[in-house]
Design a protein around this nucleic acid. Structure first.
Lengths: 122, 122
DNA sequence: TAGATCGTTCGATTATTTTCGAACCGATCG
DNA sequence: CGATCGGTTCGAAAATAATCGAACGATCTA
């Protein structure tokens, strides 16, 4: 027997394919300080939205969701369901394939493992 | 003798200094197709606004001027008076110093002198 | 000097984005 | 099951950006 597909099937969010990424959309997504901060934060690895400091935890949920949406629709991040949360990941490979060097340039100089920015003891 | 500065001294337009360039502003300036096309066009050398095809010559002057203004205020281009015209130049050095690699990434692969994009004869 | 050219600025209108509450949904936990 | 948690969606309202005509200024040219 063929089980009916439930009317309310899990509508996972739409992500543009690699070859659909538009440079101007990507640049626009990165042109906002909050969104750029999110990208910087997940540059070191995927992160659940709920644990993302750049998405101000005190801000209204709908605002946080909107930030993620712009990044997702531009193809900058993927947003995957993970338990109750959503896991944000940077689409490094897709961005690099489509716009080589762009992400590195936007993320800026890689923080050296030797200098973490903390004050050194004299 | 000290010549009086005329009341109506040539009010040359304000340009941000190199160290005042903001990444988000630059990205925003580049995130519009028309503005990006202007940048691509002057990438090969300075160009008078009047001769810039990306600034649709048929569009109202005030719209054309506004496009140039956003690019100028973001620090992407300089706009220098040149006779009756204004000469737009890409601020390559400043952008490279401040955001290394960004411009190259945005401009994309340099068109090879061998392959100019024209269809090859079979 | 007068006219034409190129571009800026201002103000008004329109279009696009952002923000946020409310309603809702699935997953988890008691 | 019922409550809570994390997040989306849908309006509507506010903020921001784009568009364009009109007025102006400076430069060149006749």
């Amino acid at each position: 027997m063929i089980s009916d597909v439930p009317e309310t099937l899990p509508p996972d969010l739409p992500h543009p394919a690699r070859d659909e990424l538009e440079l101007t959309q990507v640049l626009f997504a990165l042109s906002d300080p909050v969104r750029l901060a999110v990208v910087r934060e997940i540059a070191s690895g995927p992160l659940e939205m709920v644990n993302c400091a750049a998405l101000r935890p005190d801000a209204p949920k709908s605002t946080r969701s909107h930030v993620a949406k712009v990044l997702r629709e531009a193809g900058v991040v993927t947003s995957a369901p993970a338990g109750r949360c959503r896991l944000l990941s940077l689409r490094r490979d897709d961005l690099e394939a489509r716009f080589p060097g762009l992400l590195d340039a936007v993320l800026g100089p890689r923080p050296s493992p030797i200098d973490d920015g903390a004050p050194t003891e004299s």
